[in-house]
Design a protein around this nucleic acid. Structure first.
Lengths: 244, 244, 244, 244
DNA sequence: TATGAATGAGTGTTCATTCAT
DNA sequence: TATGAATGAACACTCATTCAT
C-alpha cells in the first residue's frame, strides 16, 4: 500500500547523492535499503502469530507512525494521529503494540538493523587495500546519508528517544558504538601519526555526518552532492592525507 | 537518568579543558560565561515591572528549570518539578511565565545571547593574521565546548525545541546561522583551494562540535582535553593545512 | 436553590395552563414540544459519526446539563456535576463536547429550534381572520409559557448566555428577533391607531411574558392559568380593543 | 474622579426620555438620582472607620466594579479587573471588601436604596386624584427607565445575582416586592372590572419595563422616548381605559 | 493605608489504555 | 480481527485570598 519510506526514493535529495556516490566513489555494498518486506519485524509486542492480514495492518501502523513522527515529532504524536493515518481504530492499535513506546521500539529496531548492515559494510578493507582513498570516504558518506534520510524522523528525535526507556537507550548505544568502532578501525588503517586518537576521530566523523544532515535540513537546504563532496574532502584530509 | 550536569563553571569537566585551552591555544576573548546576574533576563513573559524580590524569584525559576530539564528532559519535566526545585509554589510560576513554553523561551533566549557573544568573538582576525593557526582553532573549540557544557540541557533538547513553537525555532535558526557564518568567514581566510565549500565547511564544523559533545556524553565518556585536541587537529588539517 | 424544574411535559405546572389554553383559547398548532428523540441534535461539537449508543450518551449529557444548570446555574455548574448526573465519566464528556460552552451551545440551539417553531406558528392569520381575538392572544401566551417552562434554566440564564460567546449571542439575537417580528406582524393586523408602534409593542409583549415568568418563579409563585388569563386580557386590551 | 455612573447623565438615551417625561407627563418626585456622595455606603465589610482618603478609595473601587461588571458581566469580572480600573492594588481591595460578593452586595444595596425611593414615589395618589392618567403612567415609566439605565449592569445580571448568596437574594426579593406592591396599589385605584388581577398586573408591568430595556439594548436599539410613549399607552390602555 | 509577591485549592482538559460488541 | 465507546489518572492553569514590607 503506502510506500514504507517517508520519502520515496525517487524524490530524495541524497538518493541522487548516493547514486552519484556509486559513480564517484566506491559503493559500500550491503548498505542499501534491505528490502523491507512485511515480515521484517516479527511482532515485538505480541506473541500472537500474525496472519497475512494482521501483518499488513501492523505494517500500516509502523508506516503511519513514521509519517506521524516526521510531521509532529515523537512527543507530539498521539496514538490517535497514528491510527488515523493508518486508517484503523484505536482498539486495533493495541492489538499489535502494547503502547506507544513499544511501537517506537519496533521502529528503532528496524532502523538499528539497517544501521548494523551499514556498519558491517564499512568494516572491510579499502578498495585498493592500505589507506582508505577519497573514493572510499565518499562511499561511507553516501551510505550514511542514505540511512539518515530514510530514517530521518528517528534520527532527528534521537536525543529524546534516548530518554524514553532503557531498552531503547541500549539499542541506540549499541548502534552508535558499532558504527563508531567500524569507523575507528578504518581510520586506524591510515593514521600514521599519533596526533590523532582514532577512537575520538571515529565518533567525530559520525557526529559530523549526523548533525550536518540535521542542520542543513533545519536551515532549509537539504544535503546535496556538493555538500557531501566537501565533507568527503574534509574528512579525507583530516585523517588520511600525507599518510601515503 | 543523566547526572545533573548543570554546575558552576568551577566544577565543570570541560572548564578544565577551557583553561587548558587558554594555555595551549589562544583564548577567544569575550566568550567566557557572562556573569549571570539577576537582571540578565528582563522578564520575558510578563509586562510587570519586577522589583528585586521578584527578580530573584524569576532567577530561581529559570535555574530550577535548567536543572529539571537536565534531569528529565523538557518533555518529561512538569511545572511541578520546576517549582519544587525552586522551592516556590505552583501559582508563583504563572506569575512569571505564562506556561512551560514561555519558560523555555526565556532560557533559550539567554543561551542565544551567550551564543551570539561567542559568534562575535569568533569573528575577528587570527592571532597572527592570515590563515588561522592550530591554536586559533583550538581556541574556538574550547569556547564552543564551554558554551555547550553550560547549556547542555538545551543543546541536548535542540532538536525538539525546534518543533515546539515558531518563535523558538526562529531564535535557534538565527543563532545557528550566526555561528555558522562566523566560522565560514574564518574558514574563508585560509582556503586557498576551491575543493572546499566554506559555507558547507562552517556548518560541518559546528555539526561535529555539537554532536560530538552529545555522543560522548551519551556513551558515558564526557569530552576532555585530549578529545578536544584531536578535534582541533582534525579541523585544522581539513581546512588550513598546506595552505600556508 | 431553585427546585429542579426540568420535567416531562406531563408534570409541568403550565402544561396545565396549556391544556387549559386549548380549551379557553385557540391552540397555536405546531408550537407544542417537538418529540425530542435521540437524534434531535446532530452532534454539535464533534465530527464523529455517532452510533446509537453514542447518541444515547450524548442525550444523557444534554439532559444532565439541563438539570445541573437548573440546580446551580450555568456558572456554578462544574463539568463534574454534569457527568455525575449523566452517570458517565469525565473523559466521556469531552468525547461529545469540546467544553462547557460547547455543551451550552448545543442546548441553546435546541431551544432555538423550538422557539423558531413557535414563531412560525404565531405567524399565521387569526382564527376568525381580521383582528386577533382574546382567544388568539391567550393561545400565544400558552404556547410561550410552555416554551419558557421547558427551557427555564436557559431562559433564566439568558442574560449571561449572551456574554459567553459571540456565536451564542447570535443565536439568541436571531431567536429574539424572529419571535418579536412574528408578534409585530400580528399586532399590525389590528392596530388601527398610530399611537402604538407595533415594533415596540411586539418586543414589549415578549419582554413581559419572559420576565413575568421569571419574576413569579423568583417570588415563589409559579405562573398559573389565572395569571396567564390576566396577561391575555392586558395584552388584548392594550393592542386590539376598540379596534373593531 | 471618575463619574459615579456608568453612563453619564448627559449621554444617556433615557435621561433625555426622563426630561421629556417631565414635560409630557407628571414627574415622579423623589425618584431622581439621589446625590451619591462619598459617604453613601458606610463600609459594608469593614468595621474600620474610614477617613477621607479611605472613603475615596472605596468609592473608586465601587465605581470600578460597576464599570467592570458592565464590560464583562459579574462572573467574568476578576478582582484583578476591578483593581486595575480603580488604579489600586490587589491587597488594597481586601482592605475594603471581604470578597467579591461583599463588593457586589454593596453595589446592590446602593441600587436597592434608589429603587426604594422610586417605589415610595410611586406610592402616592395620582396627580388629579382618582384613576391614574396617561401622564401618570408615563411618569412611572420615565422614573423606572432612569433607574434601569443607571444600574444597567446590575439589572442585566439580576438573574444571576439571585443565585450568588442568600442575603443578596433577600435584597432583590424585597426590592422587587416593594415595587410590585406599589404598582399594584396604583392599579387597584383604577381597576373597575375584576377581569384583571391587580397583583398579577403589577408584576407584569414591572416585568415588561425591566425586560424591554434589556432586550432593546440587546438588539442594539436602546430605549428612546418613542418607545417609552408606546409603553405608556399600552399600559394605560390595558389597565385604566374605559374605567373613567 | 498601600502594595507587590506568594499561595494552593479548585477546575478544565488531554490522552493512553481498556472494554464491549 | 476490528471497532467505537468509555475510563480516569495526570497535568496545566486560574484566581480569590493572604502575607510581608
Amino acid at each position: 500500500m503506502a510506500p514504507p519510506r517517508v520519502q520515496s526514493a525517487e524524490t530524495s535529495a541524497t538518493t541522487g547523492a548516493k547514486s552519484a556516490a556509486a559513480r564517484k566513489g566506491a559503493a559500500v555494498e550491503g548498505a542499501g535499503p534491505s528490502p523491507r518486506d512485511v515480515d521484517a519485524v516479527g511482532g515485538p509486542a505480541s506473541k500472537r502469530v500474525l496472519r497475512s492480514q494482521g501483518r499488513r495492518t501492523m505494517r500500516r501502523l509502523l508506516d503511519a507512525a513514521m509519517i506521524a513522527f516526521d510531521q509532529r515529532g515523537y512527543y507530539d504524536t498521539r496514538i490517535n494521529d497514528v491510527v488515523k493515518i493508518a486508517k484503523t481504530s484505536h482498539g486495533t492499535f493495541y492489538l499489535y503494540f502494547s503502547n506507544k513506546e513499544d511501537l517506537l521500539r519496533a521502529l528503532v529496531t528496524e532502523a538499528g538493523i539497517d544501521a548494523q548492515h551499514l556498519a558491517g559494510a564499512l568494516d572491510r578493507p579499502p578498495e585498493l587495500g592500505g589507506t582508505p582513498q577519497w573514493s572510499d570516504v565518499r562511499g561511507w558518506i553516501a551510505a550514511y546519508s542514505d540511512l539518515w534520510v530514510r530514517y530521518a524522523p528517528l534520527f532527528r528525535a534521537w536525543t529524546d528517544l534516548a530518554t524514553i526507556d532503557p531498552s531503547l537507550l541500549e539499542i541506540l548505544r549499541q548502534t552508535l558504538t558499532l558504527m563508531s568502532d567500524a569507523l575507528e578501525r578504518q581510520i586506524g588503517l591510515g593514521a600514521s601519526d599519533r596526533t590523532i586518537d582514532s577512537n575520538t576521530a571515529g565518533m567525530a566523523v559520525l557526529a559530523m555526518l549526523d548533525r550536518f544532515h540535521y542542520m542543513r535540513e533545519f536551515v532549509g537546504q537539504p544535503v546535496d552532492d556538493v555538500a557531501l563532496d566537501t565533507l568527503a574532502t574534509m574528512i579525507h584530509r583530516s585523517l588520511f592525507e600525507g599518510t601515503a
